[in-house]
Amino acid sequence: MKHLLIILILAITVSACQKKDTTTPDAGKVTINITSPVPAQVFRSGDTMHMVATVSYPSELHGYELKISDSATGNILYDEDEHVHNDHFEINSTWVDTATTAATLKLELTVEVDHTGTEAEKTIYFNYVP
């Protein structure tokens, strides 16, 4: 009984110590590869735009935000965010623009490295023609 109790106390004490990954958050180590759209690509009204990207990092990432905005007015046309808890992930989303005026649009992919505001970002500009 005594031995069992000692083993139990030791097990609880040891298991209460939680090791953690001590990698220092570094946005510069995030690799963002946007394969679609490509810079200066032209889309016409009704076209389906595929947004395809891969993201990787040496440690845990926490999420991303994918946003399309009008580069002149700043109007946000598309906004998607997801929680992700992995060191790599893929994004595969679609969007259809039906606006009536031509514009240069900005695609921003923001990756959340930690929960204290460390972020990595990549931007692509492309064109929309009605």
Partner: peptide, 16 residues
């Protein structure tokens, strides 16, 4: 309750 691990093998401790 102790913290969860998002990935125990990688020691990704979820301190939230």
């Amino acid at each position: 309750t102790l913290h969860d691990y998002d990935n125990y093998n990688r020691k990704w401790l979820n301190e939230q």
